[in-house]
Amino acid sequence: MRPFTYSRAASVEEAAKTAATTPGARFIAGGTNLLDLMKLQIETPAHLIDVNHLGLDRIEPTAEGGLKIGALVRNTDLAADKTVRRDYAVLSRALLAGASGQLRNKATTGGNLLQRTRCPYFYDTRMPCNKRRPGSGCGALKGVSRSLAILGTSEACIAQHPSDMAVALRLLDAQVDTASADGSRRSIPIADFHLLPGDTPHIENALKPGELITSVTLPRPLGGTHVYRKVRDRASYAFALVSVAAVFAKDGQTRFAFGGIATKPWRTPAADAAASSGAAAVAEAALSDARPTVHNAFKQRLTARTLASLYRQKGA
């Protein structure tokens, strides 16, 4: 861990301004990912801005009938929120499928969106990794890649996005609300928030330097049956091999989002359109652009099977 300075922001404006004017500054909330990465010197911020005390920990209804979730709402609190459980159950289920109770007590809504990959080559600083050290090559592409992405990959990077929460937010068409140093605010559709790796896998999201996530806004509830199915190598406390979030809506507007198989929380309109044709058709539509490695090709079949399980669950 490189030595760093620390300040506690008193307001959103101050946090954003400090971030924009301090070289190497990063925000810190729960620290469940950043601190580990700092110990390994995968992240080497010069300055940490503590945003835990900005009052961004409320869950409130919006005028549009949706829900505004403060960026500092802890995963545990969000999963247990009555409105979330009633109207956005897929989000609650996705949250509870992730990490452990202790980690969920610390991890925040904003922080989880910024969670970094679990690619083992990203985690070993002696290995090549374009995400960690741009231009150094990809250790995973021809290496041990069983856990990595089959969708949204590039020649530069096949690292999977590890979040469960973000898959549910992607399904629900959440907006990521931010504040910048110049005082401006904006809302980024979650589809545009996470970026594909392309030639620049080190750039993972649409945030500009210093831009702070203040909340996540959910649109009006979709109704329907909410399901989150996460398949992994042990019963708990493991990252997804494949996860599928789905809302089976009464009017037939069923939709799917996928985790564990893509470089970002994944949705594709073709999969939703195939919903009435059954699990196999949805899988085929979702995976038409898949580019698996020898190690992770099984994720295609597992995605189809997970969808089949989801349909079975819905039917029951």
Binding site: Y123, R234, A235, S236, Y237, A238
Partner: peptide, 9 residues
């Protein structure tokens, strides 16, 4: 990444 059983297993 090296998985051993957890309680749930």
């Amino acid at each position: 990444e090296y998985l051993v059983p957890v309680h749930a297993d």
